[in-house]
Amino acid sequence: MSKLRIAVQKSGRLNEDSMRLLKDIGIYIDNGKDQLKASAKGFPVEVFYLRNGDIPQYLKDGVVDVAIIGENVLIEKGNDIKVAEKLGFSTCRVCIAVPKSSNYNSIKDLEGKRIATSYPNTVQMYLDKSGVNANLHIINGSVEIAPNIGLADAIVDIVSSGSTLFKNNLKEVEVILKSEAVLAVSPILSEGKQAILDKIQFRIQSVLKGRQSKYILLNAPNHKLEKIIDVLPGMKSPTVVPLAEEGWSSVHSVISKNEFWDVIEELKSNGAQGILVCPIEKMVL
């Protein structure tokens, strides 16, 4: 059987998050230091460790079959490549930043100005949509220093925490796009490899659903059971088991981690006791 070739970033945070996801879906990679390619144990997959910016072209050419890549890179260099799955990690945003001393009111203030960036296609699309003409300076590397050395009036770059902008006396003024890691697919994919990808996607979806949810167990007085069940959406309906102590039941359910604290507070106000919350490794619906 031919192997599915998966590209991941060769180093950095995205690499770590990608390898953790592969491990969570049961794909174990035996890779040594500085290895550019490695095979999975017991699964028809090869992992290629590549420069992030090179991956879109490798997908287009069919050198790799799928990739875990930042959505921002795909938009810049391969916006015609299909995204099979959004993965929910390695989140960031592509932003316009200007010196803190600048009197910035709107994107129109960049008319005729110089913008330094590593994302010229993304920036040009945004400027065209906004009806603004500006001069782009393409910089591969640290663009934050460009305003300080007089090379540009503004920059466009990836922002996670904003600390790098702060250190360089810059302020964020526009968000061009929000990005996360995605599973991207080559347009040149055989039927056999699509079958392998389908299995991988099923596993990824199970892991992502688990990460987004919490398993909750609690004790409830029977006279408050109906109200407590109304608070818990669950997968279909909560599991209710009578306790040895008369008049009490144990309730088991699944809740979204985004609603966690609101749900917990409502449960307590309705008489729930002994609330236990557990992480979910995988969730298959």
Rank of each mutant, 00 (worst) to 15 (best):
A38H: 13
K86Y: 14
F166A: 14
V284P: 00
S161H: 03
P242H: 09
V182A: 03
G32M: 08
L197G: 03
D153F: 00
L14D: 07
L165R: 06
T164Y: 01
G78S: 02
A220H: 09
V143P: 00
A184Y: 13
G192Q: 14
S190W: 05
I6V: 15
G210Q: 07
S102L: 10
I145Q: 11
S39W: 10
V156A: 08
K209E: 08
K108I: 02
Y104E: 07
L189K: 12
N140C: 05
V207R: 10
I155Y: 01
A244G: 07
K41D: 09
S130V: 00
N133Q: 14
I196E: 06
I264F: 06
N105S: 13
Y119E: 03
W248F: 15
V8P: 00
K282C: 01
Q35S: 15
A67H: 09
K113S: 02
V8S: 05
V241A: 06
N168V: 03
Y58Q: 13
I75P: 00
D24T: 09
K209A: 11
F43S: 06
D198F: 02
E180Q: 15
L50G: 05
N52I: 11
I96S: 01
F260V: 08
V156I: 04
L183G: 03
L225P: 00
I176Y: 03
K77I: 01
A67S: 12
I228R: 09
W248R: 15
D24S: 11
I75R: 12
K82W: 04
L177E: 12
K23V: 05
D17A: 13
A184Q: 14
V251N: 06
S160N: 10
I264C: 02
Y28S: 13
T91V: 11
S249V: 13
A7I: 09
L208H: 08
E180W: 07
N258P: 00
F48W: 13
K227I: 12
G26V: 05
A134H: 04
S213W: 03
T239C: 03
C92Q: 15
L218H: 06
F260H: 15
H252R: 14
K178P: 00
S106D: 10
D230G: 08
E259D: 14
N121E: 13
D30A: 11
Q9E: 15
N72D: 15
I204K: 04
T117S: 08
Q194D: 09
I27W: 05
Q201Y: 02
M235L: 14
Y215W: 11
V123F: 01
L243A: 14
K108F: 00
R211W: 11
I229N: 10
A116P: 01
L197Y: 04
T164P: 00
E76C: 01
I158L: 08
K209G: 00
I68A: 02
F48L: 12
D54S: 13
G70D: 12
V240Y: 04
K224I: 08
I228Q: 06
V240F: 05
V123Y: 04
H223G: 04
S161D: 10
L87F: 06
I204L: 00
M235W: 07
N79D: 14
V66K: 11
K178E: 14
K209C: 01
D24M: 06
K236D: 10
W248N: 11
P279C: 01
K37Q: 14
K60T: 11
L197F: 02
